[in-house]
């Protein structure tokens, strides 16, 4: 399943973001951030205790089932008395959750996490970025491995000179996407696909901010 992969902000940054906010309501999420141990029940409890020690007043806390879901509006409504008492909301969800909540509640919203990428759990406690939603899918010519996402430089015509023993120049724990693509296409006897010249990519297929209608307007 596609997941939002997050990391906790440093205590220092959080302290700065919470300056002047005395009464805080904390929100976590039961989905992706629970899996990554960044915004589930244990993390909400942990940050609550930290804030209390720092002299903050916590008006309440809650872990939404799926923060980015439309049902979030109803859950927030049910908790409005405690939310209303707060000066700000500390939100331990991914950026989708933060934005969903910010649209519902007229309060200062502080993200407690940084959203790193959209990916999936590929091993126990290991998460990999899979797709960057570039809008022009090249997977048909790359053996199902995405170089736009999995190559550090997003190269579409083959590896750079920094690849070393199948690993990336920036981190030997990261695979060279083009070695993976090469091996895969070789197995499929389709190296002809790799030899095909790819023109400079269209980065404006769906110009930011992305918007899409099922029925053209």
């Amino acid at each position: 399943m596609i997941r939002s992969i997050t990391q906790k902000k440093t205590e220092e940054e959080l302290d700065q973001l919470l300056t002047g906010i005395a009464r805080i309501f904390i929100i976590g999420c039961g989905t992706c951030v629970t899996m990554t141990h960044t915004g589930g029940t244990p993390e909400v409890t942990e940050i609550k205790e930290k804030l209390l020690k720092k002299g903050k007043l916590v008006t309440g806390d809650l872990v939404l089932p799926v923060a980015c879901d439309n049902l979030t509006a109803e859950v927030l409504h049910e908790n409005r008395s405690k939310i209303d008492l707060a000066d700000g909301l500390l939100i331990l969800t991914c950026a989708f959750g933060v934005q969903t909540i910010a649209r519902q509640v007229k309060k200062t919203t502080i993200p407690g996490l940084d959203t790193l990428f959209i990916g999936k759990e590929t091993g126990l406690g290991q998460f990999d970025e899979i797709c960057t939603q570039c809008g022009s899918c090249i997977l048909g010519e790359t053996g199902g491995v995405c170089p736009v996402t999995s190559c550090h430089k997003g190269l579409v015509n083959g590896p750079c000179g920094g690849t070393k023993n199948g690993k990336c120049e920036i981190d030997e724990k990261k695979d060279c996407a083009w070695t993976l693509i090469y091996n895969r296409l070789k197995d499929l006897n389709r190296l002809d696909l790799m030899k095909r010249y790819q023109k400079p990519k269209n980065f404006q297929r769906e110009p930011r901010p992305g918007k899409y209608w099922l029925t053209p307007t």
Partner: peptide, 23 residues
């Protein structure tokens, strides 16, 4: 193509790579 931004002395910069060497 160019080395990664991470090799250098402005590690927080955005690497462009709008094109590659063959392009």
């Amino acid at each position: 193509t160019g080395d990664s931004i991470l090799m250098g002395d402005h590690k927080e910069a955005k690497g462009v790579f709008d094109m590659d060497s063959s392009q």
